[in-house]
Design a protein around this nucleic acid. Sequence first.
DNA 1: TTAATTTGACCCAA
DNA 2: TTGGGTCAAATTAA
Length: 263
Amino acid sequence: MENNNKKLVETLTRGRNSAMRLQKLLRRKVHDDGLVSIDDLVMEISRSFSGSLLVLNSCNSGKFCGVPVNSHVGSFDRLPEVYSGNGVKNPAHTTKERRGSYKRRKTIDSWIEVSERMEDGHAWRKYGQKKILDSKFPRCYFRCTHKYIHGCKALKQVQKLEDESNKFHITYFGSHTCQSTPNTSMALDNDFINHGYLPSSPSTITSIQIEPFFKQEDNQSCNDAQSSSPPLLWKEILVDDLDIFKKDDVLTAIPFDYNTLVF
DNA sequence: TTAATTTGACCCAA
DNA sequence: TTGGGTCAAATTAA
């Protein structure tokens, strides 16, 4: 994984440098194609590389988030399935007979996010909470609300970070197969964007905000994350730059400091 | 009344 | 044997 990251960083660095060299060459010849200036296009390419590099470096430094997880352990893909997709219990299997037939969670199709919010636009139903060994805070278990309606197998685990008191370590397992997109209506809502989520289609966003919201007085429960406080202003970013964090239409909201980019 | 959450029990993998 | 993931009855909220 570390080697892959190194190679990726090298490749992106090379790409960015090439784009910048191209920009210099083009400046000598053409200045405009009538619609978008070449400078703008090349700058966009450069931004894309720089954004990717920044994010990768952040990942390497262990500060965050949004990367597929390969190291997670746990159980997933419980077999056999208790419920049919239409939400009706299978009478052939009583709960007592079926209980315990779990399988360890597969590492594939899972990813981690470190966020100050638990919300991601999807509807989740909490189905468990567990005290984790050597952890100050319990881990909360959520499944998609539409699990039994649409057979959606998306799960997520939320655990409050001990070192960063207002952040959550969120692990997603599986993608949403239900019809509910990450609040489709909200995705077009400025307020939604202002709360730190990105729309599902690549576009340029300005002034994305994210809310640090965690209530300090009662931090034992994962559900405290629903309250809010004044948002932090994000700098302008290109969503295209963060495309690598899109996973099956589930977007990972990533704090992104545009000021740290070097072009 | 229905939906969501809580919480102890159950069970498996490590 | 134990930690962690899930279930489901009981409880709470809407």
